[in-house]
């Protein structure tokens, strides 16, 4: 496990996520160190996306979904009674499997969408923030001349980077990526992976992937989930080269999943 230190931002404590009476994630305790990339891997249906969706309280939006246990953001349980899920999501950004640009908005407005939720930022600062976000998402050079055209006209890979820009524009603490390259071609995938290395300087990143090579390439820490349970977690290098458990090794070598 990653060492607990003062920079710890995000952690789960015996987190169980349920749909009605079925537990999709069971008693998972994980630490996500600041400014690192943590990959969650496992066969499909193992609960990795559900776990991710618990980290910004998106899980509870599904029918009959609820959780027990804790998710700690800077030591505060985000499922605590006083906490507003909407505020949590502003500090924990998310990017989905398929690009989801808002079709009625321009590129600029898409990126500015999260900034304008409060409506407090002056216009000049919005423009600065949008440019910064687009540069962080390595999209600025491609779109700077057509900021006010529709976002739907972009390619799939560009759309996904737009979504990353949109997620980082409000400067969240954590960025959750739910199989962000699942619908992209190899070139698009590579750009997103490169981005992960750039972005972890500013954000704490959690990425769900079914692609083990991707996890090995982008992450500092890896957690292996199977049937909703955390099997093994640790430094990616260690986990991939000398897994402690046979089950992990079996999965990594492609014997199941």
């Amino acid at each position: 496990m990653a060492p607990v230190d003062a920079t710890l931002l995000l952690a789960t404590d015996r987190l169980t996520a349920l749909f009605h009476r079925h537990a999709a994630v069971k008693e998972v305790s994980l630490l996500f160190p600041s400014n690192t990339v943590t990959a969650i891997i496992g066969p499909s249906g193992c609960g990795k996306s559900t776990l991710l969706r618990c980290l910004n309280r998106m899980h509870e939006l599904s029918d009959g979904a609820w959780v027990t246990g804790k998710v700690l953001l800077e030591g505060v349980d985000i499922y605590g009674g006083e906490v507003d899920a909407v505020q949590v999501r502003r500090r924990v950004g998310m990017v989905f499997q398929r690009p989801t640009p808002f079709p009625t908005m321009s590129i600029f407005d898409n990126v500015a969408a999260g900034l304008r939720v409060d409506g407090r930022l002056p216009t000049s600062q919005v423009a600065t923030a949008v440019e910064r976000a687009l540069q962080q998402a390595a999209l600025w050079d491609e779109v700077k001349d057509r900021l006010h055209t529709s976002a739907v006209a972009l390619s799939g890979g560009q759309q996904q980077r737009l979504c990353i820009a949109r997620a980082v524009a409000p400067q969240p603490d954590v960025l959750l990526l739910d199989e962000p390259t699942a619908s992209l071609d190899p070139a698009g995938t590579q750009r997103i992976e490169e981005l992960c290395h750039e972005l972890k300087r500013r954000y704490t990143i959690v990425i769900v992937t079914h692609n083990m090579q991707q996890a090995a390439r982008v992450s500092d820490y890896t957690a292996f989930l199977y049937l909703g349970q955390l099997i093994e977690a640790g430094r990616t290098r260690d986990l991939f080269t000398k897994p402690r458990l046979e089950q992990t090794e079996a999965y990594l070598t492609g014997r199941f999943g």
Partner: peptide, 12 residues
Amino acid sequence: SLREAALALGYP
């Protein structure tokens, strides 16, 4: 997915 994207962005 659009609804989720907006909610994930911290839209009420």
